[in-house]
Design a protein around this nucleic acid. Structure first.
Lengths: 392, 392
DNA sequence: AATCAATACTTGACGAAGTTAATTAATACT
DNA sequence: AGTATTAATTAACTTCGTCAAGTATTGATT
């Protein structure tokens, strides 16, 4: 094997290598999402000939994006010539991901396989666009020029924002928590940081990350449900994230589960969010904060526990609706609301099982709180994805 | 232009022509779904060069699948050379479509553009597999060897069955109305009729037909909701029909819309079907038949009218759920239940508008009863599609 | 009438990206 | 050592597209 060409500090003129062929992108994607594999198994998985894999992989190896496993790492015995599995050279390139909330920035540096290498938090006092841009720039500097020097190998930044985002143009059409309308965040952040910027809705970003690197890896279709002040849902169908023709998709929060239920701020009645959204739980529990409600429920207050039970069940019914309508291969439930995981879980499962129809009940349900850094990792994942699959 | 090679009675060795290239299938599909177009406009639509269209179209013209519009039919003036739009030669090939119900077969012959050329109905006394096959064979004979002779140009048969169907293998896993389990209908019907058979779930078949030839034509994503004894929903997303990982998708009937609603035979509570399914309407109205309920409601009986109102609203809520979760470009509502169209429509719209979230409310809703022949046309459409797009 | 600009289509050379078939490589088993 | 077996590579070929240049047919302009 020719030794790798890449010298670490080299220029980034290797873009052409990644865009070389459709097969190159497919190979990288498969290796990133499913770990090291031999060329033959890649060929089978991608529906290519092994010759095509050999050809497409070589330039990626030469450019330092792929490497072969060391002899020692290879798998056990078996007849015939042993495979030389390919692996992504994770440290070949780094990506910054930042999640913007109303009062904080959470940032990470990830390698090519979306493993977190560094973390940073910064409070956000103002939601003025210039102030936020300054904080983003400062955070990028802090992350890239910190104890480990990532700067030379980092060219991309992913931003995750809640609300209505146009990923293609980097435009934030509307963001409730930041009170933004039509902010060209992509362009502005690119100018401020010198990085290529991808902007995406936060739930979609997290869904992408879970689909590529997390619980949804390998699944052709996949749903991620987030529970918090709002109830959100990201969907991947036939391997592609779902956006909705009119820009709306995955709006699980405003599904009706109880026609006679409480009024929702959306104008409807008995929406999942009007039963299980944080502020509605607080109101129904009669406490001042959600933490107080959690404490009381854990202490055994039957009224407050019933509020959580009802909320969990509403979420379960909503998830069953997703399973019945879309039929994803698996569903992950997460979000900051799941800090009260123990109060929700059995009721979510009960609601789901009650209403999932036929084989939809077989859909595995993963209920797991994700730390806030995961959201930032989602932003980085979108950025990685946009690098590996320029189209889409 | 060289005169067309096809002689009508020629052998069917032109399969190779259709499968010639990806572009050929794309051109045919575009012409079938969107009507005659010039090569240049096809090129734009399909993202090809006009040279590619010219090249791929030629063999299709020579084999008689496409023709150029007559000079007289061409569009109006304009600078430059006028276009010679291509059109599908609809009578080049015919397809039989049969919809199987519990007590009747409905059959049609369609041309390549899914226009119905002949219709046939046959009662079904027995659901014994051999008896049904005999009826299918008789119906095919009646349709193909009738006043017009379609036999020479027909090689394919599509069958639509309600229940759990594996299209790829032609297996009917379970069909409630026919009381079938694991019937290899595709193979059996092929042997009996000598035609190439495609078997598909009836709702999916109708969805395909509407997506290609009906209200959903041109839409990238699309939903069809059927109202009858059950409530069904077929979905097309990113141009592909949705099947669901565990074989379940579009199960709109068992969505909860009222957690305190009536019990459903599925075991849940307040499902759409338990409020709007035919038998539940009859029970709630306290009549013996659905026709009696319709008559009474139309006569002004307020109790029965309220039952229809509630049913319509439940359907509307279900449709809103589809719009919120999946975001189709358009939604069609149909099915035999819509014979009572006038009783439902305003309530369906009201339920939809109440619960559709944000831009999802912009999704156009087409509420229209479809005659039973449309279901048979759906079966034919699946057969046409399998001919034009061998893969998928 | 002759020319020109505009648009549609056709042609042939070329190139990208895959394929198949034959070859080489590395292992286990006998 | 020899053979079977699987992995990877190589080289020749195929497919399917693009590009650039040319032809065809019209309306408008000189």
């Amino acid at each position: 094997m020719v030794p790798v060409d890449f010298r670490g500090m080299a220029t980034f003129d290797d873009d052409a290598v990644l865009a070389a062929s459709p097969a190159a992108a497919a190979i990288l994607t498969a290796l990133v999402t499913s770990g090291p594999q031999s060329r033959v198994s890649l060929a089978r998985r991608l529906g290519l000939s092994s010759a095509a894999v050999t050809k497409s992989a070589r330039p990626l190896i030469n450019a330092g994006y792929l490497s072969e496993l060391d002899a020692t790492e290879r798998t056990g015995p078996g007849a015939g010539r042993p495979a030389s599995p390919l692996r992504v050279q994770a440290d070949r390139e780094y990506f910054v991901g930042i999640k913007l909330t109303g009062d904080e920035l959470i940032g990470v540096v990830c390698d090519l396989t979306a493993q977190i290498q560094a973390v940073s938090h910064r409070p956000l006092d103002s939601s003025d666009v210039d102030d936020v841009l300054a904080e983003i720039t400062a955070m990028v500097g802090e992350l890239l020029d910190g104890p480990r020097d990532f700067r030379a190998r980092t060219r991309r930044l992913g931003l995750a924002v809640s609300g209505d985002v146009d990923r293609a143009s980097g435009l934030v059409r509307y963001s409730p928590f930041l009170r933004w309308r039509n902010v060209t965040l992509g362009k502005l952040a690119a100018a401020a940081t010198g990085l290529a910027v991808t902007v995406e809705n936060d739930v979609k970003a997290l869904t992408t990350a879970e689909h590529w690197f997390g619980e949804g890896a390998g699944a052709d279709s996949f749903a991620l449900v987030t529970v918090g002040s709002g109830i959100g849902c990201g969907l991947v169908i036939n391997g592609r994230p779902l956006s909705g023709s009119h820009g709306v998709a995955g709006e699980l929060g405003h599904l009706t589960v109880d026609a006679a239920g409480p009024a929702c701020h959306c104008g409807g009645r008995g929406c999942v969010e009007a039963i299980a959204g944080t502020s509605y739980i607080v109101a129904a529990a009669g406490t001042r904060t959600i933490d107080e409600a959690v404490t009381r429920a854990r202490a055994g207050d039957p009224t407050v526990a019933a509020v959580f039970a009802r909320a969990g069940e509403a979420i379960g019914l909503g998830i069953a609706a997703v399973a019945n309508l879309v039929g994803p291969a698996r569903i992950v439930v997460s979000g900051e609301g799941l800090a009260a995981y123990d109060l929700f879980e059995p009721h979510i499962r009960a609601g789901f099982e009650r209403q999932a129809f036929g084989a939809a009940a077989d859909c595995p349900l993963v209920i797991r709180p994700l730390p806030f850094e995961e959201w930032a990792r989602g932003a980085a994942a979108v950025s990685i994805q946009s690098r590996l699959v320029p189209l889409a």
